[in-house]
Design a protein around this nucleic acid. Structure first.
Lengths: 253, 253
DNA sequence: CCTGCGGCCTCCCGTAACGTGAGAGTCAAG
DNA sequence: CTTGACTCTCACGTTACGGGAGGCCGCAGG
């Protein structure tokens, strides 16, 4: 009558019955009642608690710690919610950092640039001990390793790669020509190059939405590793390319 | 000389040495070389692979599956990155759903509204079997359970709650009065009420940033559970409140 | 009244992804 | 040539459950 059975609770909470049994065993969530036959009966407060448990669990907390947190008499429900809100925002921020990291990796592969381990794992290791900076210098210092098209994976043939490189080079040249001629970055002929660039990426590497494309444009300017590639051709070219990409994306909406 | 030791790799990848040993044991990531003494030496391609592993792991994939995915010869690195990008975006979307869920719970507690289990766990159970709809109806149908101030947690005294309810009621009344008088939602006297509302929440429940406040405003209109509370007072009041909150937030920037 | 049959119970063993030493070899530095 | 930091290979411990086995409950149908 009153309350819910394990099966019901398991159903709408999206967990298994076994999980609820487990939570009962370890004292994390014991139903406030049992029927005469020994069946578990979950009441409203139990559901409240389960929800809290699931939130913290989703955030990666060990169950023992969750028990401690929830049994702390000094903390009320509002505080928990506030804390969870904060934790979620942080986790989202972290994942967004991972997205950026993936995009960087995609671009690095695309441009045949190889990253140092430090760069590569930037987002995974939390502490930055600085003492690797010199090694990074010695690897990237004066060498032209940047330009060296040392790709490592994928299944394109050598001929494919020649074609791709030629195509990409053609795009940069087109941008450069318009740049020196003084054509505004937002003008139709320049955004047309940006659009071809976007399609080029889509054709050979990964589906490049306008959103991603704009992100890449930003990166070409902000990330020194890529900026150098364009600034080496002409000063201000990276920003010019970025602006044309942004204008192209804006026009497409 | 060439390559990196377990300790080095573990350091900048943010994992323990034991983890790398484990990955070696199960054949997920075996260093491509060993020294004469039997020390593991990780080369560049190993680092590539480790990065992929960590991405998929972060996304919750079991190691065995990661092994299968990465050993699939039909998939190249670019595809992996694209897939990871997609997976990350989904995970972010899910967490954002959780944020909304937490905010809903905060508001439900604040307004003394109790949610059905289905509502409560909406975000956890992925499949919606529909057959619970009638039960929800019978619980929420004609009753005035909405208004019933049946709070369950927190440590406020009864007197506190009287005060809080009175204060909240006063705010709604103030909005209502301005609404019937025809004061524009963006005018100073109306946004002043919104600001008092925001401070009210902050004082009694949780830190309410302008961002959250705007979100709540949207919810008061979009979420029927809350909309009814305001629409019951006057038709269009919910939207009016939302607009005044938005205007207040905009003015604060 | 019996008989399924689905849900629930309590053991209890299995698994994944490591943690945590134990005991011993390795290596650059002093 | 010793010492301390690093590494190796067992090997058992832990967390958070999964997945039965064997046995009650409770209600619909013959």
């Amino acid at each position: 009558m009153a309350g819910y059975s394990v099966g019901q609770v398991a159903a709408f909470a999206g967990v298994t019955v076994r999980t609820l049994h487990h939570y009962d065993e370890i004292g994390l969530l014991s139903p406030s009642e049992r029927t005469a036959a020994g069946y578990r009966r979950y009441a409203e407060p139990d559901l409240d608690r389960l929800q809290q448990v699931l939130f913290y669990r989703e955030l990666g907390f060990p169950l023992e710690e969750i028990t401690a947190i929830l049994d702390d008499p000094g903390v009320d429900a509002a505080t928990h919610l506030r804390r969870q809100h904060e934790l979620l925002r942080r986790r989202i921020a972290r994942l967004e950092a991972l997205v950026v990291s993936v995009e960087t990796a995609m671009e690095a592969a695309r441009m045949g640039v190889s990253l140092t381990p430090e760069e590569r794992y930037e987002v995974f290791g939390e502490f930055r001990p600085e003492d690797h900076a010199e090694e990074a210098e010695s690897r990237w210092g004066g060498t032209s390793a940047w330009v060296e098209s040392r790709r490592r994976t994928s299944s394109y043939s050598k001929a494919d790669w020649e074609a791709i490189k030629a195509e990409a080079g053609g795009l940069v040249e087109a941008w450069h020509a318009l740049f020196v001629r003084g054509a505004p970055a937002g003008s139709a002929e320049v955004t047309a190059v940006a659009e071809r660039h976007r399609e080029h990426i889509g054709r050979w590497f990964y589906e490049c939405t306008y959103e991603i494309h704009v992100g890449l444009g930003e990166m070409y300017v902000a990330d020194e590793r890529f900026a150098r590639n364009y600034e080496g051709v002409a000063e201000g070219l990276a920003a010019y390319i970025r602006d044309s990409i942004a204008a192209n994306a804006a026009a497409a909406r």
